[in-house]
């Protein structure tokens, strides 16, 4: 894998961290985003992630490149999983190394923040009340907007 990837199988946190290890880096910060059992008070049984893969990879690489320019001593890597994920599965791993921990924490936090803001990946949340696209809030309340046949409206 390169320093960014979109994967269908289980992510290896260690493999992502290994991308940023180097002799000059005293600090490595790794973030794992894991599917929770509850989201906004709703029980979650399954999350289906999909990506606009070519753009998602390009955008992740742009984020890594711009952060390495902003924080010249940092090295970053990230992997995002797509497909059907269950509670406890790791959906995303971000890693940042730097000579000192302040830069490594800052870089890792900025990396996940920008991924969540800009990388074209979506998830459909499945729970006891049905399924809907996370972040596309109105759709689950508006009867005339279907979900490709999956939609059971919430509440």
């Amino acid at each position: 894998m390169s320093c960014v990837s979109i994967e269908r199988a289980a992510l290896s946190t260690e493999r992502v961290a290994a991308e940023v290890r180097r002799p000059g880096a005293g600090a490595i910060v790794v973030f794992e985003g894991t599917v929770r059992d509850v989201n906004d008070g709703r029980a979650v049984t399954l999350l289906e992630y999909e990506a606009y893969e070519a753009m998602a990879l390009a955008e992740m690489q742009r984020i890594v490149d711009e952060l390495e320019r902003e924080i010249p001593d940092a090295r970053l890597a990230a992997a995002h999983r797509i497909g059907a994920l269950h509670v406890g599965d790791v959906a995303v791993v971000c890693a940042a190394s730097a000579p000192h921990r302040g830069e490594a924490f800052h870089a890792c936090r900025a990396l996940i923040d920008r991924i969540k803001e800009r990388v074209p990946i979506w998830k459909r949340e499945h729970g006891p009340d049905g399924a809907y696209w996370v972040g596309w809030e109105d759709a689950r309340c508006t009867p005339d907007h279907g979900h490709g046949g999956h939609g059971h409206h919430h509440e």
């Binding site: 894991t34 998602a56 959906a91 991924i115 969540k116």
Partner: peptide, 12 residues
């Protein structure tokens, strides 16, 4: 040209 609805990568 791609239409990008609100993205929702990650988990937390």
């Amino acid at each position: 040209i791609a239409i990008i609805p609100p993205v929702a990568g990650g988990c937390a």
